[in-house]
């Protein structure tokens, strides 16, 4: 079983992305292969420089870097979303693979979940 979780919402504005991350971590806890794909506004999760302390939140980028320690297999960034937000590979946290969102990509996963 391989699971792809799609995050298409920007960080900090609501809890949906956190819930998606929590789901991914729960799967990883039971050694289920799980990947996260960031598309649309969700791409902003992957920015290296984030300082949410002034808004009393924890850095999602730091949380994500922790996620790979727990066995989340891939962090995937959609190329179009990067372009839209003016981001390059050098702006992203380590360990992110750049990919292209399409039907072929989704076909690699037995389960696709959008939070």
């Amino acid at each position: 079983m391989s699971v792809l979780i799609i995050i298409d919402q920007a960080p900090y504005g609501n809890w949906s992305g956190r819930e998606a991350l929590d789901m991914a971590l729960s799967l990883a806890a039971f050694d289920q292969p799980v990947s996260l794909l960031f598309v649309g506004a969700g791409i902003n999760w992957l920015r290296k420089q984030q300082n949410p302390a002034p808004i009393q939140q924890k850095g999602v980028n730091r949380n994500l870097a922790g996620a790979t320690v727990f066995g989340i297999e891939e962090l995937l960034a959609d190329q179009d979303a990067l372009q839209r937000y003016g981001l390059g590979a050098e702006d992203l946290l380590d360990g992110v693979a750049i990919t292209h969102y399409d039907q072929d990509l989704l076909a690699n996963y037995l389960h696709v979940v959008c939070q």
Binding site: D22, L25, A29, F30, R62, N63, G66, V69, F70
Partner: peptide, 22 residues
């Protein structure tokens, strides 16, 4: 150290064990 780096606790007991193992 983990908290300094990732601003989170290991979310669950299983993941705590996993992180210590790592």
């Amino acid at each position: 150290g983990f908290y300094r780096e990732h601003e989170m606790s290991p979310p669950s007991n299983r993941l705590f064990v996993k992180a210590v193992k790592e």
